[in-house]
């Protein structure tokens, strides 16, 4: 079974995955969504760390360290960021962090990742803007987005047919550039949210 969900708060994500495990859904893969396998319902302890690795051997060393200390790596890859671990036996209060600073540290890394993404897109956006590839004037004069010859002279059913046919293309032409500012905005918001969670953890 696949589920699509988005979390910034790892505590909430861990809780949700534990609830899923209690209902008999075992996390097997995380890419765009979560992939579960039907299994025996269990009281699992699931913890998430956030790290990406440049080299495969570093990733292997990391997983081995967790496995040596009783945490099975259940999902996540070298460059995926989120790494999912399940406790093998032991105390239900066990955690993958033993102090508050390192526990909060993963939110710093998430925040940085979103900030880097936003910074990546900004020059692209500015370049498209300054070369005139993006044209915000369509906002004020949407008629210019329609390229059908003589469209505005037509009338009745003839007009509506041509008009409605072209509308999706016109919208695409006119507003596709909005993708850049919207995504930059979303990334900055996520970076801010993660940073707030970091502050909250530090003060806890």
């Amino acid at each position: 079974m696949r589920k699509f969900k988005f979390f910034i708060d790892f505590d909430k994500e861990e809780k949700w995955l534990e609830e899923m495990a209690a209902q008999g859904y075992q996390l097997v893969k995380k890419s765009l969504g979560y992939k579960f396998r039907a299994a025996e319902p269990e009281q699992a302890i699931i913890k998430i760390d956030y790290r990406s690795f440049k080299r495969q051997e570093d990733f292997m060393e990391y997983c081995t360290l967790f496995e040596d200390s009783g945490w099975q790596h259940i999902a996540g890859s070298r460059g995926s960021g989120s790494q999912y671990f399940k406790k093998v036996g032991g105390d239900p209060h066990d955690d993958i962090f033993s102090d508050q600073l390192s526990r909060a540290g993963k939110y710093k890394r998430v925040s940085k990742m979103f900030k880097d993404l936003a910074i990546c897109y900004m020059p692209v956006f500015i370049a498209l803007m300054s070369t005139g590839a993006l044209d915000a004037s369509a906002m004020l004069d949407p008629q210019q987005l329609y390229l059908t010859e003589g469209l505005w002279e037509k009338s009745g059913a003839d007009f509506w047919k041509s008009f409605l046919f072209e509308t999706p293309f016109a919208l695409f032409r006119g507003f596709i550039w909005l993708v850049f500012p919207v995504f930059i905005g979303v990334y900055l918001y996520c970076a801010h949210k993660a940073n707030k969670l970091y502050d909250k953890q530090i003060q806890a």
């Binding site: 990391y62 360290l65 390192s102 993963k106």
Partner: peptide, 11 residues
């Protein structure tokens, strides 16, 4: 002092 895996890796 009991170190957990994630904390030790960062350290």
């Amino acid at each position: 002092v009991k170190l957990a895996a994630g904390t030790l890796y960062g350290a």
